[in-house]
């Protein structure tokens, strides 16, 4: 069945002069964890706000569970769990009040699950939100977002404020559990190793454009990191197809110079082209998400600056 939880079609958004989203098209299937990566101001939160109906799609369309979230906020928001980047929770509420209040909006609220997570985080349910630390606030927000076992769990920078143990054990487990139940999770993060570890699929946004999307393993297989040595300091990369970035190794001595290259597409073809222009390929392996992201983002910025 080709049912899409999220269906975004040619979505663009402009804030005054800057383009926050530029012709973004993406689809999300049930049972998968999606990572949303991008630099600061790339458009991640803008995209998430469109999914929640907090921004109206002025150009393009957004459908969540087949519905427009602006026109059908009740039907859509009932099935979404959302943790905002700012941990926007009412300061005057106690944690137990927050959970009791949130439960009223979600028919599928699981009180036992909420209690379980509360015990896990060792939070004082009688404490007011304004007296919580940044991490505790994130934990309270996480319980409120996940305890109704939402069909779509959206976490905007969930790692911010959480310590390494909570990040690795609890967040990972929570997100994986969502996917294992046949539900969907989308989380944005700056921590690319975390995205690589937790998600099945990735959306990479840069300058408002969706520069890369796909299954994590496929994306990694599609990209390679090659170390190549040239006998002279100048190297000609302009005509090499598939090359995303080339970075000279620092502290190079006179004579030879070693370059680290990230490329997409056929690795063998890139290696052949490098050999053709006088390079000696020293090492080749699949690139990790961090390397892919840096390569693509720096390439786009380079193109923009030239343009």
């Amino acid at each position: 069945m080709s049912y899409n939880v999220v269906d975004v079609e040619r979505l663009s958004r402009r804030y005054d002069q800057s383009l926050a989203l530029d012709d973004v098209t993406l689809r999300m299937k049930p049972g998968l964890v999606y990572g949303l990566v991008g630099a600061n101001g790339a458009g991640k939160t803008t995209l998430i706000k469109h999914l929640l109906g907090l921004l109206r799609a002025k150009q393009g369309s957004v459908r969540v569970f087949g519905l427009d979230p602006v026109v059908h906020p009740v039907q859509v928001l009932q099935r979404i769990g959302y943790l905002s980047e700012e941990r926007d929770l009412p300061e005057w509420m106690r944690i137990d009040e927050l959970l009791r209040y949130t439960s009223a909006f979600h028919p599928g609220w699981d009180q036992a699950y909420a209690q379980e997570m509360l015990d896990l985080f060792q939070l004082d349910s009688r404490k007011k939100v304004k007296h919580l630390s940044k991490g505790m606030r994130a934990q309270a927000g996480l319980i409120a977002a996940a305890a109704h076992r939402p069909d779509l769990l959206i976490l905007d920078e969930p790692s911010t404020g959480l310590d390494a143990v909570v990040r690795r054990d609890i967040l990972n487990t929570l997100v994986r559990m969502v996917a294992d139940d046949g539900r969907t999770a989308l989380f944005s993060s700056h921590l690319l190793d975390e995205v690589e570890q937790m998600s099945d699929s990735v959306f990479m946004i840069d300058g408002g454009r969706l520069v890369l999307q796909g299954d994590i393993d496929e994306v990694k297989q599609m990209h390679a990191r090659i170390v190549v040595r040239f006998s002279s300091h100048s190297a000609e990369f302009d005509n090499i197809k598939g090359l995303l970035s080339a970075e000279a190794e620092p502290y190079a001595t006179a004579g030879d110079k070693t370059w680290q290259i990230v490329c997409s597409g056929e690795v063998d073809s890139v290696c052949r082209q490098l050999t053709y222009v006088g390079g000696e390929v020293l090492q080749s392996r699949s690139a990790n998400l961090q390397e892919i992201f840096v390569a693509r983002a720096s390439r786009d910025r380079h193109h923009q600056s030239i343009g």
Partner: peptide, 9 residues
């Protein structure tokens, strides 16, 4: 206290 109230709206 880590107990949640059982009453709901």
């Amino acid at each position: 206290s880590s107990e949640l109230a059982q009453t709901t709206f």
